[in-house]
């Protein structure tokens, strides 16, 4: 087993499985976000549920672990890959042989990590440890998470800047996922000439869903609401 974890393929399996776990998480997160479109009460109830449900609390720690493992292994693999290519070609033509995302996963990943960091400070940290106003929905007192979101996405230039960062980040995430989805299945051995096409299509659709789904939120608050 120790050989497996230190082998190149073993490390990649860990990277893929943690990635697939994060892929599932994004769907859950997106579902929760879309409650925003249902107005303040709907979103606050959804957030309250997430905040207080014990199962979700446990999953939250696993999620953090998933992120850490994914990032750590991505870095280890990337550093080994840089070491394996000590000299660059003078002329290298690769546009047609591989996709841009597949060649830039690490940079997209680092960009997404930067976003994740600000995102955690803006939302997660405030909700868990910060000062938040509360509201009463159906007779129950809870955090007014809706107000927090509205505060970030509306009013003033800062809201535009933040929305811009948010949108660009989700384009980056979409590009990352576009390669990641099929790639994860390939790495765990679930692919052949037929499934590769299917998985690529599903992966692109999934990436599009995540990108569009998440960018709808700032656009909704900036321009529609």
């Amino acid at each position: 087993m120790s050989n497996f974890i230190t082998s190149s393929l073993g490390k990649k399996v860990i990277l893929s499985l943690s990635g697939l776990f994060l892929i599932m998480f994004l769907l859950v997160h997106l579902t929760a976000n879309l409650f925003l479109l249902g107005g303040s009460d709907a979103f606050n109830i959804a957030t309250h549920f997430m905040d207080t449900n014990p199962v979700i609390q446990i999953i939250q720690s696993i999620l953090a672990l998933g992120f850490i493992i994914h990032i750590l292994y991505a870095l280890i693999i990337q550093f080994q890959n840089w070491r394996a290519t000590p000299v660059k070609y003078k002329k290298k033509y690769q546009k047609e042989s591989s996709s841009w995302s597949s060649r830039n996963m690490i940079w997209l990943g680092i960009f997404i990590f930067g976003f994740l960091f600000t995102h955690i400070i803006n939302f997660f940290y405030v909700m868990k440890f910060g000062e938040m106003s509360s509201t009463i929905v159906h007779g129950e007192e809870m955090h007014d998470a809706y107000k927090l979101v509205v505060g970030l996405f509306t009013g003033g230039t800062l809201a535009y800047v933040y929305s811009g960062v948010y949108i660009v980040s989700f384009v980056a995430l979409g590009l990352h996922l576009n390669h990641a989805f099929w790639s994860a299945f390939q790495t765990v051995g679930w692919s052949n000439d037929i499934w590769r096409k299917r998985l690529s299509v599903i992966g692109s659709l999934y990436a599009l869903l995540i990108s569009v789904g998440f960018t709808v939120i700032p656009i909704y608050f900036l321009f529609i609401k």
Binding site: S97, W190, R196
Partner: peptide
């Protein structure tokens, strides 16, 4: 280095070896 499934090898291989074989290697491993 570690394969990151970019597919450049398959595109440039003079014998057109498919990435499906890499999936099989991963399975076997």
């Amino acid at each position: 280095g570690n394969c990151s499934n970019t597919g450049a090898c398959e595109a440039e291989c003079p014998k057109g070896i498919s990435l499906a074989h890499i999936a099989r290697l991963n399975r076997e491993f």
